[in-house]
Write a protein that binds this DNA or RNA. Structure first.
Length: 491
RNA sequence: GGGGCUAUAGGGUAGCUUGGAUCAUCCUUUCUGGUUUGGGACCAGACGACCCCGGUUCAAAUCCGGGUAGCCCCA
């Protein structure tokens, strides 16, 4: 049977051709590729971050560098390659990371030790820390690095969300006391939450990871977890209290005020380009990317409506407004003066690229001394007198940011289901809910939950109510419950 | 870890079953010129592809083997 000829006229070829809720996976790929955030690389599981995507990462870096500066964290850089013997020093860490480490193989392999490509830098950094830290005067030591890491995922790679190589920041601090270590580990979590919620408009659950899910080698892991429209969570940032395990393994010690040798306390914490994937998944729609204004590389685009006789005047007005906006807010506004595209084409393209506001200026607007402003998030169109342009722009950018956050927050809250029995759990898992329940804390029990529920894993134990109320029982095994835990499927 | 599907120009596709005459189809993008421009404009012309390696054959986009990459499903 011959296939029907496609009605090419009606097809928006470069736009998004599938709907978010019908084929989320294909939709996500199209949004990322066609908005030019990223591209596939010729190497499996790797990605090319294109300038538009990298601009978002740069905005995240700029913001977080500011945060770290206030906290007294300094940036540095350690090698990509880690000697094999370093991994073995901390047993839990080695066990956790060995399966996904990529090794370098070279012609002079026999001459020296095998080298790993860093999956994380605890070991190579702490080897140096052992040399650098002598006295209590060297503490606290707070160092961060922005770099790439490699974790050899075997399947299910997805741009930004899961790739073999990704970019991140990893902070590694050393403290004299357990109290200060724990305090700052949690402080970082708060900063991650602020980044996610205030900058990326992405509401998160914050809490502690269970024994099963905590970082290999950590005493405690704290996490921020974002919840996606398709009912899967994304672990979006983690802060680990490492206790003294690494310090002991790497021989980090200091002379205290009491002239005695002490073992310090350490934490490590990281966020990655995964944040970008989560943000895209969360806010974007059937027309393409939707970016929160605070993180958007281009906050607004001005589209002139050009006719031969009024062309110069309209373009002048556009540039005048661009200059005004830049002076007032110091952000990038683009005037799309390309002659080869019609206005309608441009509208679609900038919507695909997620620019928060579009300002249209044509001859009719000039006569009325107004501009047309259209919001990306709602599509609402407003006629704004030129005299009110600056105030209105500011107001709308704030509204878009707020609306995106509120919408996502509402979805997350509405997705939370409290369950007490295993039947309820299974039903909620089936419906892709964010399941709040009580749990015994046993690793084996958690593994059973994941296997039998079709992949629901623990997200976190909420900080404000981590301990289960006395008398409550584990949703799976029925033994006395230790913790309140959120479960869901995840990316 | 197991199973399935896919790969033809920047994007989307036809051709593959049954190997040949189709200097590989059509739409779109891009480029040139002209007319246009308030939600993906129109006309004319041009550029542009069979994923890689090997095999079968007089002849391979098409059949066979291997590789690479992507997608989906299950654990």
């Amino acid at each position: 049977m011959a296939p029907l000829k496609k009605e090419a006229k009606e097809e928006k070829v470069m736009g998004i051709t599938v709907k978010k809720d019908e084929d989320p996976s294909e939709w996500y790929s199209q949004v990322v590729l066609r908005s030019e955030l990223a591209d596939y690389a010729p190497v499996k599981g790797c990605m090319i971050i294109r300038p538009y995507g990298y601009a978002i990462w740069q905005n995240i870096m700029d913001y977080f560098n500011g945060v770290m500066k206030k906290l007294g964290v300094q940036n540095a850089y350690f090698p990509l390659f880690i000697p094999e013997s370093f991994f073995g020093k901390e047993a839990e860490h080695a066990k956790g990371f060995t399966p996904e480490v990529a090794w370098v193989s070279t012609s002079d392999e026999e001459d020296g030790e095998r080298l790993a490509i860093r999956p994380t830098s605890e070991t190579i950094m702490y080897d140096s820390y052992a040399k650098w830290i002598r006295s209590h005067r060297d503490l606290p030591l707070r160092i961060n690095q922005w770099c790439n890491v490699v974790r050899w995922e075997t399947h299910a790679v997805k741009m930004f969300l899961r790739s073999r190589e990704f970019l991140w920041q990893e902070g590694h601090c050393v403290y004299e006391t357990e109290e200060q270590c724990e305090l700052e580990t949690r402080l970082i979590l708060k900063e991650y939450r602020r980044l996610a919620e205030d900058i990326l408009a992405m509401p998160v659950l914050t809490g502690r990871k269970t024994e099963k899910e905590k970082f290999a080698g950590a005493k405690r892991t704290y996490t921020i977890e974002a919840f996606m429209p398709d009912g899967k969570a994304v672990q979006s940032g983690t802060s680990h209290n490492l206790g003294q395990g690494f310090a002991k393994a790497f021989g980090i010690s200091y002379l205290g005020r009491d002239e005695k040798k002490h073992t310090p306390w350490q934490n490590s914490w990281g966020i990655s380009t995964r944040l970008i994937g989560a943000m895209v998944l969360l806010h974007s729609d059937d027309k393409g990317l939707v970016l929160p204004p605070t993180i958007a590389p281009i906050k607004a685009v001005i589209v002139p409506i050009l006719f031969d006789d009024t062309k110069d005047a309209v373009l002048n007005k556009c540039n005048e407004i661009k200059t005004q906006l830049f002076r007032e807010f110091n952000f990038d506004v683009k005037v799309d003066d390309r002659d080869e595209y019609s206005p309608g084409w441009k509208f679609n393209e900038w919507e695909l690229k997620g620019v928060p506001l579009r300002i249209e200026i044509g001859p009719k607007d000039m006569e009325k001394k107004q501009v047309v402003i259209v919001r990306r998030d709602t599509g609402d169109k407003e006629f704004v007198p030129e005299s009110k342009l600056l105030d209105k722009t500011k107001e709308l950018l704030e509204l878009v940011q707020e609306n995106l956050f509120k919408k996502a927050k509402k979805h997350m809250e509405n997705s939370i289901v409290e369950v007490k029995t295993w039947d309820e759990f299974m039903e909620a898992a089936e419906q892709r809910k964010l399941i709040k329940t009580t749990f015994c804390g046993e690793i084996g029990c958690e593994e059973k939950i994941k296997a039998e529920s079709g992949g629901a894993s623990s997200r976190c134990m909420p900080l404000d109510a981590e301990k289960a109320i006395d008398g409550s029982i584990c949703v799976k095994c029925g033994k006395p419950a230790e913790y309140v835990v959120y479960f869901s499927k995840s990316y």
